[in-house]
């Protein structure tokens, strides 16, 4: 039996990933804010082959509520094979520049809350001595760019935190998987003009499942973002300052 816990389960990438696991006959525990949408998704996953689907609501920025919900997930599933942390927003960079409050609120959702969840989940996986902790970071975390550096900074924090946690948990047989999607065509990005670099959530989901199966550490999805980000990371600052990205 494959037991899967998904946080931010109503996001497009998370839902597509849940469908992959449902088709394999997994047992799922879903966490998100919107109870009605969770119920729809749970019904859908049952039809698609999930052996059982339970769900709970959580606002990830309410850090004090994390422990309770995680306890429920572990009580329901027993041992958990895959944890996917997928919640997030795409902040308006302009708004973050004009309001400290907005900037910190967005950082709390995309950075602090994720680090809090990983901190709380780590000892549980450590005790199991097995499992995968997959966290959705972003190519935006690889280098701060003027178009979305608040989001990028939060994701950089997540990537760096995950890197350290991976080193720690590898010793007990737990894999921490950092997922760095590029542009994904989801409701979060509905106002963007889509081009050749855009991927569908289903493709990202297949990549996540494959990477989790193979025990990968860091994956760029789709894979072509690896060379692109390699180049972007290595552009010298004196040039980087002069270009728009």
């Amino acid at each position: 039996m494959l037991n899967v816990l998904i946080i931010g389960a109503t996001s497009a990438i998370a839902e597509a990933t849940a469908r992959c696991y449902a088709a394999r006959g997994a047992r799922l525990f879903l966490i998100a804010r919107d109870a009605a949408r969770l119920a729809d998704i749970a019904a859908d996953l049952r039809v698609r082959g999930a052996v059982g689907v339970d769900h709970a609501t959580l606002d990830v920025t309410r850090l004090d509520a994390h422990a309770d919900v995680l306890e429920r997930a572990w009580t329901t599933l027993g041992c958990i094979d895959v944890v996917l942390i997928a919640h997030g927003t795409l902040p308006d960079q302009g708004a973050c520049e004009n309001s400290v409050e907005t900037a910190l609120a967005e950082f709390a959702i995309n950075g602090t809350a994720t680090i809090a969840l990983m901190t709380a989940i780590a000892p549980r996986l450590e005790a199991q001595r097995r499992g995968v902790l997959a966290v959705i970071s972003s190519v935006a975390g690889d280098r701060g760019r003027q178009s979305n550096y608040l989001y990028g900074a939060a994701k950089a924090a997540v990537s760096t935190f995950a890197s350290g946690l991976r080193q720690r948990l590898a010793k007990v047989g737990v894999n921490v998987l950092t997922i760095k999607p590029g542009f994904v065509d989801t409701p979060m990005t509905r106002n963007f003009r889509k081009g050749a670099l855009w991927a569908k959530p289903e493709a990202i989901a297949r990549g996540i499942v494959r990477a989790a199966d193979r025990g990968r550490s860091v994956v760029y999805l789709p894979g072509f973002w690896l060379p692109i980000m390699l180049i972007i990371r290595h552009i010298p600052e004196f040039i980087f300052k002069r270009i728009k990205l």
Binding site: D40, I41, A43, D44, V47, R48, P187
Partner: peptide, 18 residues
Amino acid sequence: RALDHFIAFDTGTGVLEC
């Protein structure tokens, strides 16, 4: 196209709700 959830499927009777 994003309204793509199954609701129920009775494998005995073949009634599908989606």
